[in-house]
């Protein structure tokens, strides 16, 4: 069975992480920011699975489970914060969420 070199899987993980980081930086819609964070978490787990495939150990897959748990908690909190922001500001634009800014600086 011919297999892929581990470096290709790691570069794939790096590319996914870069796309996710680009989304977090550029997008102003908070829904897209949350989805890009999901993509970055998945990229980290791709790197873990690639390392697990390199050494034929189960540890990388265990850490994938931990990453999924973290992502589930993050999505639950993030989406409820998003609903709260939408309820308060009637918008999901990250530029509109500026209550901490001092008066007069707008």
């Amino acid at each position: 069975m011919n297999n892929v070199p581990v470096i290709h899987a790691l570069i794939f993980a790096g590319a996914l992480f870069a796309i996710g980081a680009l989304g977090v930086i550029v997008r102003r819609n908070l829904v897209f920011v949350l989805m890009s964070i999901e993509l970055m978490l998945i990229a980290a787990s791709v790197a873990f699975i690639a390392a697990a495939a390199k050494w034929n150990q189960a540890d990388g897959q265990v850490f994938y489970i931990f990453i999924v748990v973290t992502a589930a908690a993050e999505v639950a909190v993030g989406l409820s914060l998003l609903l709260r922001i939408h309820h308060t500001f009637k918008s999901v634009d990250s530029d509109d969420v500026s209550l901490l800014r001092e008066e007069g600086e707008r």
């Binding site: 069975m1 297999n3 892929v4 070199p5 581990v6 470096i7 495939a53 390199k54």
Partner: peptide, 8 residues
């Protein structure tokens, strides 16, 4: 990392 290993 560049040599494909035997995969189990």
């Amino acid at each position: 990392l560049q040599v494909p290993g035997k995969q189990i």
